[in-house]
Amino acid sequence: MSEEYKWGMVVDVDRCTGCQACVVACQVENNAPLSSEESFQRRRPMQWIRIERYWEGEYPHIKARFLPLLCQQCGNAPCEPVCPVYATYHNREGLNVQIYPRCIGTRFCANNCPYNARFFNWVEHQWPPVMANYLNPHVTVRPRGIMEKCTFCIHRLHRAQRQAKGEGRVLRDGEVQPACVQTCPTNALVFGNLKDPNSRVSSMVQDERHYRLLEELGTEPSVVYLKKVVPGGRAS
């Protein structure tokens, strides 16, 4: 394991408004295919980060809860051991990474991801020629037949780390952010280095509101959530 870095994210559910800015930002940054109407109807949209909306109660005492969901970058990732070809594996900085060229598309990893964070390329995606101009040259365009998922914008991490290494230092807190975090208007998403005791995420994961999704499964997610606050509501 890397001595310097273990990447983590904190999602403050109390701040998230469901605005979808992170969703679009991720798609722009990561060359996500255009999710067509049909892709929604057949339930195959590509959203590495998505906003799940849960209803609670009945009208008129009804609430909607927004839950931003992305790959939890599990420390003990169930998607990894089941891949027959090592197309998905753990890197030294605690990330679950996906090697597109190796993937043969068994979708076993997706079955074994409790968070449904993995997305399959059911069809060959196309961009009208002019549109392809905006594609990010630092992110592979995925062909059909393979699996993909949130990478914690690993290309940004690598570029920044290379830069920092050249300057003979480690990355400073906040120096690099994934696209979703960067754009989130309410700052519901915070990203950083869990190995750095002084980073914002390191202090936020200690918040009394913290919880992890499906923690009981032992997946050791690197994404930590902070609970929605309800004044006078039921404590948990």
Binding site: L67, L214, G233, S236
Partner: peptide
């Protein structure tokens, strides 16, 4: 979509 009884995916905190 609702939170199933006994599960905590969008729990509430009273802080």
């Amino acid at each position: 979509p609702t939170q199933l009884p006994g599960t905590e995916i969008v729990p509430e905190a009273q802080v």
